[in-house]
Computed example of a mutant assay.
Amino acid sequence: MCEPTEDLVRASAGNALEEVVTSVDLVARSSNFLYRLETASGAAYSLRVPRLRPPVLSPFWQHLQDVFGLRYGTQLLSVGPILRAVDEDGLLQAPRPVAGTTVGDRPAYIFTWLEGTSREPDEFPDSTEVHERLGEYVARLHLRTYDTYGTLTEQAIDPAEFVTRTNASMRDTIARFWSHRPDIGAWFERHAAATDPDVFAGHLAPIMPDISGNQFVYHAGTLAGVVDLDSYVVGPRELELAVVETCLTRPEDFRRGYESVLPLPRFAEFRAYCRFWMLVCEGAGDPDVDEFLTHRTYFA
């Protein structure tokens, strides 16, 4: 999608808020165009406009649709369960939905603006306080267990299907994006296709499959809020833990925070499979498979 003009964003947001929008700043481009808005009353909001257009999705968003049933472009309408969980736990803040609108022919979503310092790298800051709070935040969400998995609002998929559905999605992505890398296809057939489904059947909870340091904001030296709610689903906690491990700079502090709530599982049983999924979802580049699967392996 071409970047919307400032005038179009201003008019669409102003109509939805029923207030004059005095400032429009584009602050990020990822799966959404993310804007910071200010109004004549001095209020600040965020506006998210999806950049992708189904059925042409990135490998990551296609996977979330294939495996969890998450519908890109409308998922921000269903973040109520994660907001309630964040409120109940009281560790972090999260933006609140305010209004829906359209920008051109795209849906767009207005949330309250969450103050704090944002971060570009995937890695979390080198801070004990950040990692302990992150570990506790993730673990408290993992206390909310489910018998089946899916989206935040509908869990209808048997956990025994997770590996089968994930493998089908990965096989399609490899055919579309990695045909020039036969070693990736070979690793899939040799290892991923032989994965025991029971590895992921034991602990289903709210997870962020792309969790990283740039999904949060920071204040006074610690984690202050979670700002990216798009990809939250109900799924195996092992997937989120394998992803977050690659972003830690103080793993033992993360462990301390997590294990103040729950014991960490054994990563050796699921790490390679989940990291291979991460590699496949990259959809581009020239990664060294062995290095990708083994860098930053902190937990047994």
Rank of each mutant, 00 (worst) to 15 (best):
T5G: 14
T74V: 03
R144S: 12
T148F: 12
R53A: 15
A85L: 15
R29T: 14
Y146R: 02
T39A: 14
V27W: 14
H142V: 01
V233C: 08
L264W: 00
T294S: 15
G90N: 06
F124K: 00
P97R: 07
H142F: 05
S23N: 12
V226G: 08
Y232P: 06
M170G: 10
T22I: 06
V226W: 12
L229N: 09
T102V: 12
C2H: 14
I211V: 13
L52Y: 14
V138Q: 03
N214F: 01
D198N: 15
F216N: 00
E129I: 01
E291P: 02
V199W: 00
G42I: 03
D105S: 10
A186K: 13
L37Y: 11
Y72R: 05
D172H: 13
R53Q: 15
D210W: 05
V244Y: 00
T22P: 01
R171Q: 12
A220T: 08
E19L: 10
P107V: 04
G185H: 02
T128A: 12
T195S: 10
A205W: 05
D122W: 11
N167I: 02
R140V: 05
L229Q: 06
Q65Y: 11
L8S: 15
M170V: 06
A156D: 15
F162S: 01
S260F: 00
N32H: 15
A94W: 03
R96K: 15
G185S: 01
A201S: 15
S46R: 00
T249H: 07
A40L: 12
V163I: 07
P159Q: 06
I184W: 06
P125S: 02
L70C: 10
S78P: 00
A11K: 11
T22C: 01
T249Q: 11
V234L: 03
E154C: 11
T39K: 09
L141Q: 03
V234M: 02
D286M: 09
P251K: 03
G257M: 01
Y273E: 04
Y258P: 02
P251D: 05
L37N: 08
D66I: 04
L91S: 00
A108N: 05
A192N: 10
R48N: 11
V56I: 14
Y258N: 00
S212T: 07
H180T: 11
E161N: 06
A156V: 13
W187I: 09
E136S: 04
P121F: 03
L264T: 02
A16S: 07
L26S: 12
D228A: 08
T5I: 08
G80M: 03
I184F: 07
R256Y: 07
E115R: 12
R51F: 04
E6W: 07
R275I: 09
D230G: 10
C2G: 13
G225M: 07
E18Y: 11
G100K: 11
A194F: 06
G104M: 12
L239M: 13
A205H: 08
